[in-house]
Design a binder for these strands. Structure first.
Lengths: 126, 126
DNA sequence: CATATGATTCAAATTAATTTGAAACAGGTA
DNA sequence: TACCTGTTTCAAATTAATTTGAATCATATG
């Protein structure tokens, strides 16, 4: 079934007058065409899922002050090693932080992406 | 146990040299004092949890274009009524959208908060 | 090389979020 | 009133995220 036909079918299922209410954007078709594409939506929600945890927000808050080794983060947050590693890995996968080995220790810091997102978060909370 | 004593205990548990690495922010104590407080952290993660879902990002994208009734959103996203209601309720609880009854229909739109967060999300994705 | 320490990985258990379908609710109309 | 339609609510089932503790890895040092 073609795109046009699918849209026609959707419109058909709407109550009377609903389609007309979509007036400023080229109807249902215009609406659908202006949604972000799937890969972008996936990337956005990967980042938001990474940000959607209190421990991880605390980690970002600490790293915004200065790069820190795992043991300091661990001490401040009072969590187990493996639990902290898990949260760090989520932030790393989302591209918000990066870790650099320095001898035995690993020092984490915000990436540019991490700084950008955390900064706008802070702004929006003001 | 007092705050100072707790911090002293934490420092005690750190490997040699770790505390000295926290140099630019007044040591562990300075670090802890600069973390956001709990209520703020909770509010932030409520918002991020609301944003951490692909359907909900799509909903916000649609509402950014114009206010829409439930049946249009439902048609575009192709989800069941109850599933859509669930996602709308999450966004509403986070204060990102608001619904206004217009006759039989309910029209949802972005709140100021919703616009602010969604805008900075778009900016960060550029 | 053996050992110690900082950090990660893995699988199992727990907890939280999402989906589903049935039932209920609310406004409009005959 | 009774009914229809758009929407929400609820409980049960499913799926995803998080936590836990043991095992492993990696680097430094005796």
């Amino acid at each position: 079934m073609s795109g046009k036909k699918i849209i026609a079918k959707i419109i058909d299922s709407l109550p009377d007058g609903a389609e007309q209410s979509v007036c400023t954007c080229g109807g249902l078709e215009g609406l659908i065409s202006r949604l972000p594409d799937n890969s972008e939506i996936e990337e956005i929600s990967l980042i938001f899922r990474a940000l959607a945890d209190e421990k991880r927000i605390n980690i970002l808050s600490m790293l915004e002050i200065q790069p820190l080794c795992v043991c300091i983060i661990r001490a401040v947050l009072d969590v187990s090693d493996s639990r902290l590693s898990y949260h760090l890995s989520i932030l790393k996968k989302a591209g918000l932080i990066t870790g650099e080995q320095k001898g035995t220790w690993i020092t984490y810091s915000l990436t540019e992406k991490g700084k950008k997102w955390f900064f706008s978060c802070k702004q929006n909370m003001e």
